[in-house]
Amino acid sequence: MRKHATAVIDAPAGAGTAAIALRGVTKVYGRGDEAVHALRGVDLAIRPGSFTAVMGPSGSGKSTFLHCAAGLDRPTGGQVFLAGTDIAGLSETKLTELRRTRVGFVFQAFNLVGSLTAEQNVTLPLRLAGTRPDKKWVREVLGRVGLAQRAGHRPAQLSGGQQQRVAIARALVTRPDVLFADEPTGALDTKTGREVLGLLREVVDTFGHTVVMVTHDPVAASYADRVLFLADGRLVDTLENPSAEAVADRMIHMEG
């Protein structure tokens, strides 16, 4: 048994200073004998302006961690603070509204609504929130992801990498506290993947956004400031300023 994860992670002292904070979060799917313990007690606080990668072998609870931290799913036990608010007491509608303004998402694939143009996809969260999109800001966000010229294209007219850029622009358009990315390069070829990772790095460095990314690719993880390792539903290790080799090394040890 390794050291308990809390010891190596910034203590979730004040939910107020962290973008996202988890305290003793557990998640159980199913009941009785068939119950699956996806998370077995995770404590964590994410510093604003940081790029964090979450790694772990298959079944380690990476995706569940992301869903719970982002307020997409509710934990079985423990607390999740989104922008300082405990989500436990929120109705589904209130939670959605909080998530809509404070959290951005980029998924592995199927990120875009096929019937809407790139620009319409980007402004979708704003429209859902009932705010009139600020044209200048939308154009700037599209510019940041390098798609200023493609605003009127439909997803089917864009390459896979371009689609992920649109997804990143959409995630940024609400100026979220945290941008969550779930295997954002999983469906892309190596070169395009690197470009998307570079873009994520850039939004942290240049614009001060906070990014949390789940990945199984050591190279992708190496773009982050810090890598958290999940195993069997617990945070088991952390690595600051990682290199791809160091991450791969840890992973080999974990699986071995």
Binding site: L72, E92, T93, T96, E97, R99, R100, T101, F105, F107, F110, N111, L112, V113, G114, L124, P125, L128, A129, R170, T174
Partner: peptide
């Protein structure tokens, strides 16, 4: 289902 899940993820409330 998938499209509706996506809309929910990017901030559509159940009511929406």
């Amino acid at each position: 289902t998938r499209e509706i899940g996506l809309l929910r993820a990017v901030g559509a409330t159940p009511g929406q």
